[in-house]
């Protein structure tokens, strides 16, 4: 007998009610049960950060949380960053700075950066941005485009 639960989840403002098996990770619930495939899964042990989403505003590894635990919570995924078809400043900066190549790590980096930037009032220096972005792995870019993009957005937002 599967241990199943009815949960309610708000993803990017849309409310969902679904039945999940308790062992399904939030990443799998988002991707496979709710169709938010923008969130990626790269390691399932907390190292790569490809699965990073915002859970009640906090950046978390969706592979290390069970879907049932997110019952009643608000989740923000990469699909919620743009305003309709208009890319957010962060998304635009990633493209401008070539912060992505294959794009597999990109949703995780965007959500990590989104959370970090929302806590920022000033313009962080490069080494701090690198330290924060070190939470996630990218195999393609060598990170420079990612770091540049985050710093540029911090500057823009600081005015």
């Amino acid at each position: 007998m599967k241990d199943i639960h009815l949960i309610a989840l708000t993803v990017n403002g849309t409310e969902h009610e679904i039945v999940v098996e308790s062992r399904r990770t939030l990443a799998d619930v988002l991707r496979h049960d709710l169709g938010y495939t923008g969130t990626h899964v790269g390691c399932e042990h907390g190292i790569c950060g490809a699965c990073t989403v915002l859970l009640d505003g906090q950046p978390v590894r969706a592979c290390l949380i069970f879907g049932v635990q997110a019952d009643g919570c608000e989740v923000r995924t990469v699909e919620g960053l743009a305003d309709g078809d208009e890319l957010s400043d962060l998304q635009k900066a990633f493209s401008r700075c070539h912060g992505l190549q294959c794009g597999f790590c990109t949703p995780g980096f965007l959500m990590l950066a989104e959370a970090y930037l929302s806590e920022q009032d000033g313009v962080p220096d490069e080494s701090e941005v690198r330290e924060v972005m070190a939470a996630n792995l990218c195999r393609c870019t060598g990170y420079q485009g990612i770091v540049d993009a985050v710093r540029q957005v911090a500057e823009e937002r600081a005015g």
Binding site: R31, Y36, T37, G38, T39, H40, V41, T77, V78, E79, L81, A82, L87, Q91, F94, S95, R96, H98, L100, G103, F104, T106, P107, L110
Partner: peptide, 18 residues
């Protein structure tokens, strides 16, 4: 700027697992 970027940035890339 790359044509590929937009779909990736929107979370609309399409990988096998998707």
């Amino acid at each position: 700027p790359r044509k590929e970027d937009r779909r990736m940035l929107l979370g609309r890339g399409r990988f096998v697992a998707d």
